[in-house]
């Protein structure tokens, strides 16, 4: 009798067929882009087809000279551990960022650049928003090589027909 189990299966969508997820990353804070990257990676590890659309500030996450300098934003964040009056003081952002990066390293969570590379390697499709690119005056060459293409929002929705859409 052969091994009576299947490989851990990819969950099937309620509609039937393999499950697919499209994530939209619209923010560029270190704390705001990690959820997208980790969720996308977890989806791939679970065998779920995944695509990520980077738009507006989310473009920073896939921009070559910004990706290593993403910051944590304390101002206007009600969950921030920092008292509101202090959060806006100069240096607080850098302090919070270095603290968060330290914790990430302790927990063995890769940096943003490595996460994006991992997503690409795992077969996750990464797209940049054309309109946002124009708005921030960026070119395809400014982006990480992991980015598949610069497409419009309409293109993205056409490509991700049948996906669950998650906006972050």
């Amino acid at each position: 009798m052969s091994f009576p189990f299947a490989a851990p299966p990819a969950p099937t969508a309620t509609t039937g067929g393999p499950r697919k997820i499209a994530l939209i990353c619209s923010k560029g804070g270190l704390d705001e882009c990690y959820p997208v990257l980790i969720m996308a990676n977890a989806a791939r590890m679970t065998g779920i087809t995944c695509a990520v659309f980077f738009t507006f500030w989310g473009l920073d996450v896939i921009t070559e000279d910004r990706v290593d300098h993403l910051h944590v934003n304390f101002v206007g964040n009600p969950s921030s551990p920092m008292p509101y009056m202090l959060a806006g003081l100069p240096g607080m952002e850098a302090l919070g960022t270095s603290f968060m990066k330290k914790r990430m390293t302790e927990l063995d969570i890769p940096g943003v650049r490595e996460m994006v590379g991992m997503l690409k390697a795992s077969g996750c499709e990464l797209y940049a928003c054309e309109l946002a690119m124009k708005m921030f005056d960026r070119k395809k060459e400014d982006l990480l090589p992991d980015v598949e293409a610069v497409i419009t929002a309409t293109d993205f929705f056409e490509k991700t027909h049948g996906y669950d859409i998650v906006f972050v």
């Binding site: 490989a7 980790i38 977890a42 390697a121 795992s122």
Partner: peptide
């Protein structure tokens, strides 16, 4: 990463653990 997804399609982490006879991995990355 890429090679692992090719060698063990679908869920490389879990499949490797299964064949290697170790418990199901629990980490997120």
């Amino acid at each position: 990463t890429e090679a692992l997804y090719t060698l063990f399609p679908g869920t490389p982490g879990k499949t490797i653990a299964m064949i290697a006879g170790v418990p199901k991995p629990v980490g997120c990355v």
